[in-house]
Design a protein around this nucleic acid. Structure first.
Lengths: 124, 124
DNA sequence: TGTCGAATTCGATGTTTGTCGAAACCAAGG
DNA sequence: CCTTGGTTTCGACAAACATCGAATTCGACA
């Protein structure tokens, strides 16, 4: 399950390196954009944005898929597909324990995305 | 040009209201996800992410389309299409002055997105 | 070992997206 | 007024996506 194969390029960036200055401070290099865009894309769906929030805000830092699925009017496979998308974007990690699978957020990349969007308070 | 029609729901959110607590702090309501996801989606393409950065980091706070287009190996219509996507997501504003069109970032919504992704430093 | 339940993978389908060239629009200057 | 250059809109098309039901995998536990 931990095989959940984050793309090689992404693994580098999920490290706790401060990385990239804010998007509004200096022009993003093409490679950086190519690597980070998929993370934004993954958050660009209402269902996945909610899933991400449910996972990231979960008490204990993790959530069982069995708690995520019933929160939506969607089939199990569809939720599983969205979770895979979040996984491949490097936003979450999955771990199987017994019959259940638990998801947790990857704070490093979330911080990275937040940092990228950060705007100098001086800027109107 | 200012007609560039941000969806009505979005205009509310582009206000400077602090809005929404971080995604990792409390579960995002479905409506909030529905309203904000399109903004992330718009940033979820490498070309648009670069465009956004070029616009947001521009000296003087604005950039001419004529400076954006030649920075990519893409046709004019394609760049224009991406700019429209950013506009409709409420991320940028366009203004025509003479023959040229200038784009500027909308800091409020960027701050909002950044805030949503913000992670409590205490969280590992 | 056989079955049950949880989750993922597979295959199919209708929709959305990124891209282009052609055409239209619009302001500036001859 | 007519042309020219910058930008957007239109129409088309292949690739990617969201969704589902069916089939599969994987532990747990009789």
């Amino acid at each position: 399950m931990s095989k959940s194969a984050v793309s090689p390029a992404l693994t580098d960036l999920t490290a706790d390196t401060p990385c990239c200055p804010p998007l509004a401070q200096s022009r993003i290099p093409a490679e950086t954009a190519t690597v980070l865009a998929p993370a934004f894309k993954a958050l660009g769906d209402p269902v996945r944005l909610q899933l991400m929030s449910m996972i990231a805000s979960a008490a204990g830092g993790e959530v069982c898929v069995c708690d995520l699925t019933p929160a939506f009017d969607l089939s199990g496979p569809t939720i599983s597909h969205h979770l895979k998308t979040l996984r491949e974007a490097g936003l979450v990690d999955a771990e199987r324990r017994g019959s259940w699978v638990y998801y947790r957020a990857r704070p490093a990349i979330l911080r990275q995305l937040a940092g990228l969007l950060t705007i100098d308070p001086a800027a109107v």
